[in-house]
Simulated scan of single mutants.
Amino acid sequence: MDVLSDVVAAMRIGRPHSARHYKYAPWGRHFGATDGAGFHVVLRGSAWLIPDGGEPVALAPGDVVFLAHGQGHALASGLDVPLQEVRLLSDGTWSGPPPGEPREGCADTVTLCGTYRLDRDRAHRLLAELPQVVHLPAHVGSHRSLRAAVDLLGMELEELRPGTDAIVTSLLDTLLLYILRAWWESERAAGRARGWSAALADPAVAAALRALHGDPAQAWTVAQLAATGGLSRAAFARRFTALVGEPPLTYLTWWRMTVAGRLLRHDDLSLRQVAARTGYTSEFAFAKAFKREYGVAPGQYRRGVA
């Protein structure tokens, strides 16, 4: 399994949303804090990202900013521009002024903005380690896959055509993965890789993560996981704990319960089948472990999210 894709799939809920905005100076929008995550891309012109309580970030054409933790922030043409308040609605869209259409004359700034709904109750350490604002400046030749996804998304949002809804949803999921990959690659290139960004780059730890993500039902032992990376049991346990933040089998239990929650939300499997897919030999043992993790029984959890 691809660990990064697996983690994002487990946390993402509902449909992502995106819009292309045409802006004529002066302009400014303030986005309140949310439980989700969001991004802004400057397609043309310039803008200021102003995080609540943080330092402003000047954005140039092609720049991408990602707010992984739903921090309140503003996007504006200048630092002293009055801001119009917008808020996130229950369907994942934002209230406030519509995106706008091109009018006579060229818009000063064109942006691409999007939101993702996340299950914060199962926040993965991998995303939790991201800074409040991930800024990926546009550099010639850098993050080419990310730039290509941005271009495709921008074109789809420019004109409604057959298949646009499905294409935009897929592109938004793809864009999220490209943003995360670009940031972790930048951290490693700059010698700043720590925690999960270092874990995914470590051959032994990454091999173990792929193994347990690929088959969470397997009765893994620390020795078996160590063997996937060619390390001794003790050396592997120390390295895994240092990078991931918890021992291998503790992480395995947490991941099994995360998978169980996803199956209960999205599949019609019986509790016995969910138990088997997450490494439990009996429905009773699974239900006990699930209630310890979530605070409710599996059936009650399923009814609550239905």
Rank of each mutant, 00 (worst) to 15 (best):
D151G: 04
E159L: 10
L171H: 03
A149W: 00
E156Y: 05
G154M: 00
P162D: 06
G141S: 04
D165L: 14
G141I: 10
D151W: 05
S142H: 06
L136G: 05
D151L: 13
L146Q: 09
E156H: 01
A138I: 12
L157K: 05
D151V: 11
V168F: 07
L146H: 04
E158N: 07
H139K: 09
L175F: 00
S145Y: 06
A138C: 15
L177I: 12
M155N: 13
S145C: 03
L152R: 11
L157E: 07
R147C: 02
H139R: 12
A166C: 11
L157Y: 04
L176I: 09
L177Y: 08
A138L: 13
E158K: 10
E156I: 04
L172A: 05
G141D: 04
S145H: 04
L175H: 00
G154W: 09
R144H: 08
D173L: 14
R147F: 00
V168P: 02
M155E: 14
M155C: 11
L171R: 02
E156C: 02
R161H: 15
L153N: 00
G154V: 01
L171C: 03
H143E: 08
D173M: 08
A138D: 14
L153C: 01
R161G: 13
L136E: 02
E158P: 08
H139N: 04
G154C: 09
L177H: 10
T174A: 15
P162Y: 04
L160Q: 13
L177K: 06
R161C: 07
H143L: 06
G163K: 12
D173F: 07
G163P: 09
R161S: 07
A138E: 15
S142K: 06
L136Q: 01
T164H: 09
L152C: 14
L171W: 01
L177A: 14
P162A: 14
T164K: 02
L172H: 01
D173A: 07
T164D: 10
D173G: 10
L175W: 08
V150E: 03
L171T: 09
E159A: 15
P162G: 08
V140Y: 11
R144S: 11
P162W: 02
M155I: 10
L157V: 03
G141V: 02
L146P: 05
S145K: 05
E156P: 02
L153V: 01
T164N: 11
D173I: 07
A148F: 02
I167C: 11
L176E: 10
V150M: 00
I167H: 09
L175G: 03
E159W: 12
L172P: 00
L176A: 14
R161W: 06
G141W: 00
Y178M: 09
G141F: 02
M155A: 12
V168N: 08
L171A: 10
M155D: 15
G154F: 04
E159N: 13
V150I: 09
G154Y: 01
D165K: 14
S170N: 14
A138H: 14
A166W: 12
